[in-house]
Write a protein that binds this DNA or RNA. Structure first.
Lengths: 226, 226
DNA sequence: GATTTGCAAGAGCAGTGCTCTCGTTGTGGC
DNA sequence: GCCACAACGAGAGCACTGCTCTTGCAAATC
């Protein structure tokens, strides 16, 4: 029994070890991850790595799923510390940004331009939507609590366009809440990516956190939450 | 004289030809541009390409500068067709998005995650700031025309933080206009990247243009322009 | 016309992802 | 306890990459 588990346990440890080394390489060398270099660091032949990951893409996929879950966990944890929707909204945003600042290359992996030949498999779409679902739930909760004032309804065609996305959120969310959730999420992604990838002027690294919060508050205010 | 120009003219044509083929490869194979493949397509030895570009990075830099200028030209042209600031703002946004939809890989090159070992040289920062400067000029013009209502001033520390960026815009622009310009630009980048890189649900590709305009209008409204 | 310069081609080096084969070693059935 | 079997690691090898160096040729200059 325990002997039977030996192989499985060693395999699980080895898989995790490979991912850890790969993450380290990702942090130093950037996105062009070399499987051979990872194998060298582990003191094993490059062909041996293929016993654990069928290809470089599959290793990248594993890292991507882990990254999505890490940032999703961070956002969930931060939101859980707050009671009011605006507090959850801001806490989640800061949590995502903090995680991105600590793990910039993993952020680039999931929210940057897609890796050249890489095609995201189905396994990734679940973890990928966690943050946006959290934001949607937060705004939806605010709407149900009456914290978001009534607004003239969005045009019918626009509402119909957003319907498939609205289904993945809470039932009964009006289209403008769905739209503002997406807009807020894109603002979040744009702000973090711009800060990370150097679009922002170098001289403003003093209190970027304040400017980030300014934007997240503006996104919440655009939705009617302030 | 004309014979002396022959070399120079052929060289210029060859340089342009290499960039064109490289752009075509970029559009089909993604960001991992192969210099050898480009050379093969041109019917020349790979080593010959190094007479025109010292390295693969230098070729990428040339493509990046061209892309920045292309999107900058498109935004300038679109804004010039409008007279009112909100019209310029929306037209510029749509022009950038339209260009990105036609040239997604070039968009990824300039606004996606940076290429692995690539370090942007000084030559790129000029063309890189054209779009954001246009947006800043548009909001600044609206402010001077009195189209943006007075707002309670931003906190002193926040204003000081934005000062270095404000200097690159028009003189006398209040900090909140600077902040809203940046926020709008990040919203633009986030929305386009999300649309291009598939963050958006596949079912909503019908009228994404409408949702994009919704976001750009919200960004303008956040700045006080509507 | 002689010489210097710009250019293209080829060979070659070190590195990559990935495949195949070949011993070795742990695992489950008898 | 033994044995077939599957999992595993290592090595060689293939086609590819970016880049350098040398060699020969054509154009520009003196």
């Amino acid at each position: 029994m325990s002997a039977a588990n030996l192989r499985a346990r060693v395999r699980a440890e080895m898989t995790e070890e490979i991912k850890n080394v790969a993450r380290r390489h990702l942090a130093t060398d950037g996105a062009n991850l070399s499987l051979r270099a990872v194998a060298r660091d582990l003191g094993m032949a490059s062909s041996a790595v293929y016993r654990y990951f069928a290809s470089r893409d599959e290793l990248l996929t594993a890292l991507i799923i882990d990254a999505y879950n890490e940032v999703g966990d961070a956002a969930d944890r931060a939101a859980a510390t707050q009671v009011m929707p605006l507090g959850k909204w801001l806490a989640a945003g800061h949590a995502v940004r903090d995680w991105a600042l600590v793990n910039p290359h993993q952020w680039a992996l999931i929210y940057g331009s897609p890796v050249p030949g890489y095609q995201a498999p189905q396994d990734t779409i679940g973890p990928a939507t966690r943050v946006i679902l959290l934001l949607g739930a937060t705004l939806g909760d605010a709407y149900q609590r009456g914290l978001i004032p009534a607004r003239e309804p969005i045009s019918a065609s626009f509402a119909q366009e957003l319907a498939p996305i609205a289904e993945t959120f809470q039932a009964g969310m009006p289209p403008h809440v769905v739209a503002d959730t997406l807009a807020g999420f894109f603002q979040l992604c744009g702000a973090i990516s711009a800060e990370l990838f150097g679009q922002l002027n170098k001289s403003v690294d003093e209190d970027r956190r304040g400017f980030f919060e300014y934007q997240m508050r503006a996104a919440a205010a655009a939705a009617g939450l302030s």
